[in-house]
Design a protein around this nucleic acid. Structure first.
Length: 576
DNA sequence: GCCGTTTTCGGCCCGACTGTTTTCAGTCG
């Protein structure tokens, strides 16, 4: 029986929280399960391994009781409490709690009094107007619940939008608002400001000389399909693609409070407020109130909010309650796009790219890069985009020729080599030895066991001619989960051999993601941030990789391609 | 169920909204 992954354990803890909530447990106990689930999801090492080692209670939010449940899970594959409660509450009941206006308390009431235990049963009861017989339920609720069921609510959670797509909408909206004569300050808030992988909606915070005029201008944007709630406080809109955008307009004196509140995360804000209460302060979106004086401080900037609480300014990317509010937290200097001196993963027309070597090189030069590795796909890539060994020899020569002809940038003749199912590579070693830079990646056969996939990638990591592992987990945001993999083993192997791990900057990938990037650096692995550009315009994909590194709390020191080329190559020289 | 520069017990963020109520519990973000 394979160990459960952190994601699987987190899902089980969330489910157990839901079940206890239906069972009428006090909310703080339920919250404890949800906090634990979040902690497990964000953990940088294998929880199952920590359970075996007896160190799992070192993770904040996991105490003695949860440890016992996790021990049972790891040893027997199930948690007795879950088994018991699943028998008590049908799965449909949990689904019902996802409907608007129907939380655990009210769903439980319908279950107890009318025996409703599924979305179908709920629909039938609503249609026959029998819900209104229960105290606390009326005709309005019957109508709302039918509308929600017709809209497909409760079945599957509505998909989140990759940040790349959401920002493509947010940026023109922000620009339009900033250009409007009535606007003063306009900032993106919400999870998008924290540069998460994908978002549910967008939040914009503004101050304005004429709030109603700005709200009206927002509502009339062509990007919006509809808008409502238009007034002095802002407006809410919905784009043609179905993304909600909330504009909140506030007095300048409270701009910092509102921006801080709506940037979140929720977990960060809860922890922040708990810490404030211990200092006799109460934080809300409107201000910081002092118990002793009864006075409420308004803050024009976020920095003032944090300063009032005795905290350093915390970058939005770090606001996840992953230790940024700890007493000993030192605000790190986070890596920026400007810190990157070069790019170590790009494609040309030799494989599936859309730019020539020269076009890609000139675009990279225009971005200020000192070096660019041209890493076209290898011999087994397929789709007619493979580069045969013979073609690779000619391609290397062409790359070096262009490199010689251009001033200000050095091109590395590289390859993105396929890691075959057995962990071998699809070029012979004598050919690989002629390359300046080798990225090895998995592009086929994702459906292996975790052990097989781990062995496969570790073998590539251990290959002395492999410099870096590309998009190590293979995930596509909101599209495809990472393949089963023992990330601790991957990180250990990379640290042991000095192989770089990539944070792939493609906005669909951002792979490694932040939790694993953090774990890798803590284990002594050097990372690179790459664009994986397939055309000149996507060379700036590195911004997404930088965002992921910032969310991991990483500074320039953790990223090898912040170094000049000679130092970067020296770092790798020990291996070749 | 977790946790401790107030605590090993008694706390555990904050405010708005909603539909249903005669004063508010539950839900939501």
């Amino acid at each position: 029986m394979p160990d459960p992954t952190n994601a699987e354990i987190a899902a089980l803890l969330d489910e157990l929280g839901d079940l206890y909530e239906l069972d009428g447990a006090i909310i703080h106990r339920v919250t404890a399960y949800r906090n634990a689930a979040k902690a497990v999801r964000d953990a940088t090492t294998s929880i199952a391994a920590r359970v075996r080692a007896g160190t799992v209670t070192e993770i904040p939010g996991i105490g003695k009781t949860l440890e016992e449940k996790l021990v049972a899970l790891v040893e027997t594959g199930e948690i007795p409490a879950t088994v018991k409660l699943r028998a008590k509450f049908p799965a449909g009941l949990v689904q019902m709690t996802r409907l608007p206006g129907l939380g655990p308390k009210r769903a439980r009431k319908l279950f107890d009094e009318l025996g409703i235990d599924s979305l179908d049963a709920l629909r039938t009861a609503a249609e026959s107007q029998s819900l209104r017989a229960v105290k606390g339920f009326g005709p309005k609720f019957e109508a709302t619940v039918l509308a929600a069921l017709d809209a497909g609510a409760g079945e599957a959670p509505r998909g989140r939008v990759p940040l790349h797509d959401a920002l493509a909408i947010a940026e023109p909206v922000l620009a339009a608002l900033r250009e409007h004569p009535a606007s003063e300050r306009v900032e993106l808030a919400g999870s998008a400001r924290r540069w998460v992988d994908s978002v549910k909606d967008l939040d914009i915070i503004a101050t304005a000389s004429d709030p109603a005029a700005l709200a009206q201008a927002f509502a009339e944007l062509d990007l919006l399909e509809s808008a409502g709630g238009i007034g002095d406080a802002g407006a809410r809109g919905r784009t043609h693609s179905g993304l909600s955008i909330d504009l909140k307009i506030v007095a300048p004196a409270q701009f910092g409070n509102l921006l801080q509140h709506f940037t979140g995360s929720k977990q960060h804000n809860v922890a922040l407020r708990e810490a404030a209460v211990k200092r006799g302060l109460h934080v809300s979106e409107y201000g910081v109130t002092d118990d002793a004086t009864g006075e409420t401080h308004h803050c024009e900037t976020e920095a003032e909010v944090y300063a009032l609480l005795g905290l350093p300014y915390i970058e939005p990317e770090l606001r996840e309650n992953r230790g940024e509010l700890a007493r000993d937290f030192v605000a790190p200097t986070l890596v920026t796009v400007e810190d990157l001196r070069g790019d170590l993963h790009s494609h040309t027309t030799a494989s599936d790219g859309h730019g020539t070597i020269r076009e890609m090189a000139q675009a990279a030069l225009a971005l200020g890069h000192e070096y660019l590795a041209v890493t076209d796909h290898s011999a087994s890539h397929g789709f007619g985009n493979d580069v045969s060994p013979k073609e690779l020899v000619a391609h290397m020569a062409a790359v070096r020729r262009v490199s010689d002809e251009l001033d200000g940038i050095t091109l590395l003749a590289g390859s993105e080599v396929n890691i075959l199912t057995d962990g071998t590579l699809d070029y012979e070693d004598d050919l690989l030895a002629q390359l300046d830079w080798v990225v090895a990646s998995v592009h086929t056969s994702f459906a292996m066991t975790a052990q097989e996939m781990t062995d496969r990638i570790v073998r590539a990591i251990e290959h002395p001619l492999v410099d870096a592992i590309g998009h190590p987990t293979g995930r596509l945001i909101e599209q495809r989960a990472a393949y089963a993999l023992d990330m601790d083993a991957i990180i250990e192997a990379a640290a042991r051999t000095g192989t770089f791990l990539e944070i792939n900057g493609s906005p669909r990938r951002r792979d490694l993601h932040d939790v694993h990037a953090r774990a890798a650096v803590d284990a002594g692995v050097k990372l690179i941030i790459s664009s994986d550009a397939h055309r000149t315009t996507t060379l700036d994909n590195k911004r997404w990789g930088v965002a992921t590194a910032r969310r991991a709390g990483l500074g320039p020191d953790a990223i090898a391609n912040t170094l000049p080329l000679d130092e970067l190559l020296a770092l790798r020289a020990g291996r070749r």
